Simulated assay, not measured.
Amino acid sequence: MRSARRNLLALTTAGAVAAGLGATAYVSAPAAQAKQPAAASKHHPQKPTGKPLAGLRILISNDDGMQAAKPSNSDGLGLYELRRAMCAAGADVVVMAPWQVQSGKGTAVTNGGVLTAQRRTALPKGYENDCAGTPSGSPVFGVCVADGPCGKDTPSATPADTVKLALRGGLKAKAGWTEDPDVVLTGINSGPNIAASVNDSGTVGAAVAAVDQNIPAIAFSAEGDATNTLFPVQTYRATAEFGAKFLAGMRQNKLLTGKFAVKVDYPDTTNGEKVRPPVWTRVGNGAAVYHDYEQKNGGDSFDITMGLCEGKLSSGGECDESRKDADQVWLLEKNHVTIAPITWDRTYGTSIDGTRELRKLESYVKHGAPRA
């Protein structure tokens, strides 16, 4: 068994004990930002450039935040790689992401108070000019829960908050977009979102928030390295470049739909194994890691810890995986890119309103999707 399952443990632990934010330059939202050029609408696309995503407008969010300050690359660096790849393919991109790490928030929302979308003016080194010349200027916003500027310790909006805010007025106010984005992308998450982890994932939760409003959405996640401490730029970049090609193919084949979200998990590229082609999967019904709770001194308090499913995925109990087409089997044991559809409708036994679209996408993944 590969060490990928331990990467999941490293990911979840990193999210649970996220440290303070790095020093980064920001400005609050001055009125001058309203003067940015508005993105072209769906009906008046930007001039053709010959690039596969030209004219496409993309909202990006995640659950790792947008700070990208940690040496482990676990706090949002994947978001900047995704932004870079989409702009390079010709898209107009706006980022509206949680202010701080929000791993494990699922579809949680903030029910009261004030949200502030604060623009980041100094992007991480090496990513400053990735989207130069796009119609919107491709701003990056961090969203916090505050009636005023976001600071080092300001509580963060959830991933679902950021997408709902963006689609319900935030993009119009902050980027000049008067129509919905063509697609919402979430991630790239620091670590895979597979099996039981899917229900906890804020990356997937943000994508569900988009399809809740009938906006096509794709959630991207990537494995960490074999040391359990680093999420390599190399893997983020491979994921992002695959993602741009995958999205271009979906667009070309008219597969973008708001009836369900698409979940993409990408293997580690630094373990010496060949990354294998994308596979159509289901969400696994077992667990790779799980939350556990240890009582402290027989009292009222419990430490939150992470349980790890060692050995084979068929080890029994909570760790048992019975689906041969499970995402975790094909990602962790076979090193394939895995793709699975995610629906917002949790009604058991209900036939989905999108069977035709689902079958066409499955065929594309099996026969036409880019190789990893």
Rank of each mutant, 00 (worst) to 15 (best):
N73L: 12
D292R: 14
G137K: 09
D265F: 04
N189C: 10
D200F: 15
L358W: 03
S190K: 05
K105V: 08
F302L: 01
P159G: 05
T162N: 14
S136Y: 00
A85M: 13
M1V: 11
A288I: 15
T13I: 13
S351T: 15
W344V: 11
V365T: 04
E357H: 01
G65S: 06
G106R: 10
V184R: 03
I215H: 09
A248N: 07
P232L: 05
L255G: 12
A261G: 15
P155V: 08
D63E: 15
M1H: 14
V184Y: 07
A146H: 10
V143S: 09
R237D: 05
D303A: 14
R282T: 07
T24G: 10
T158L: 13
E362P: 04
S156M: 14
P267H: 05
C144S: 10
P139S: 03
Q67K: 09
I342W: 13
E128R: 01
T13P: 00
P192Y: 02
F141L: 15
G316W: 05
T269F: 03
V208Y: 02
D292T: 12
E310H: 13
D153S: 07
P45Q: 13
V143P: 08
Q118D: 04
L165W: 01
F231S: 01
S3Y: 11
A238K: 11
N228Q: 03
Y364R: 09
D225S: 15
D225Y: 07
G126Q: 02
K360A: 13
K324F: 08
Q118M: 13
R2A: 03
E128P: 00
R359F: 10
A40D: 12
G224W: 03
K263F: 02
P52A: 09
S314H: 07
P124F: 13
L171F: 00
